[in-house]
Amino acid sequence: MTTSIIPTLKNLYDVTQEQQDNRGYCTLQWRRGKLLVKPLGQVKQPYLPSLNSKRSLVECLQHSPVSLVSIDPKLGEALLRFWADACEEAQKPIFLSIPVSKKLSNQPFWRLIDWIAASVLLLLVSPIMLGLVVLMHVYSPGSIFCRECRVGERGKLFQAIRFRTQNTTLLGRSMRKFSLDNLPQLFNVLRGEMNLTGSRCWTLEDAVRQLNKLPEIKASWEVEAQSHLLNLDSQTL
Rank of each mutant, 00 (worst) to 15 (best):
S50K: 11
T197C: 11
I116R: 00
P215L: 01
P73G: 10
S97D: 05
S199K: 14
I98W: 02
L57I: 03
D21Y: 03
K92T: 09
L75K: 04
K103T: 03
D233G: 04
V66M: 03
E193C: 04
P108K: 06
M136R: 04
E205F: 06
F82P: 05
V134D: 00
I6D: 09
L204M: 10
N212H: 02
R154I: 01
A118C: 03
L170P: 01
L230F: 09
T203Y: 13
C201E: 15
D181R: 00
G198D: 08
R191Q: 13
R154N: 13
P184I: 06
Q20A: 11
E222I: 09
A219M: 08
S64D: 14
I94C: 09
W83M: 10
R150T: 06
P127L: 06
G142A: 08
R55C: 00
N212D: 10
T236H: 03
L237M: 06
L12C: 04
G76W: 02
D14I: 01
A117E: 05
L211Q: 12
N212T: 15
G76F: 04
T3G: 02
R164M: 01
L232N: 00
Q159E: 15
K74Q: 15
L48V: 02
V133L: 05
Q19S: 12
Q107Y: 13
I128A: 14
E193N: 13
R200L: 15
S101Y: 00
T3K: 01
V15A: 01
R31I: 12
S199Y: 14
R191W: 04
P65I: 12
C201W: 12
I71P: 10
R31N: 13
H63A: 08
L36C: 08
I161P: 02
M175W: 05
V223P: 02
H228S: 15
V125G: 09
R209A: 15
P184A: 09
L157D: 15
L79Y: 11
Q159V: 05
L180F: 14
L204P: 07
Q235T: 10
N11G: 07
N167L: 12
N231A: 12
I116K: 01
V58D: 05
Q91N: 07
I128K: 05
N195A: 13
S126E: 08
V100T: 11
Y13I: 00
L123G: 14
N11K: 03
R173W: 12
G152V: 09
G155P: 15
Q42N: 07
V138G: 04
K156D: 14
T8A: 13
W202G: 15
T165K: 00
L123P: 11
P49N: 08
T236Q: 02
A84T: 10
T169D: 00
T203V: 14
E222V: 12
Q91S: 05
C87G: 03
I116H: 01
P7K: 02
S105A: 10
R81H: 11
P7V: 00
F163V: 09
Q226M: 12
C146I: 13
Y47K: 05
F145V: 06
R150N: 10
R31Q: 14
L237F: 02
S199W: 11
E222P: 13
S227M: 12
W202I: 11
N188V: 02
L28D: 09
G41T: 11
E222D: 15
Q42C: 01
L9Q: 04
D72E: 12
S143E: 14
E205L: 09
L186E: 09
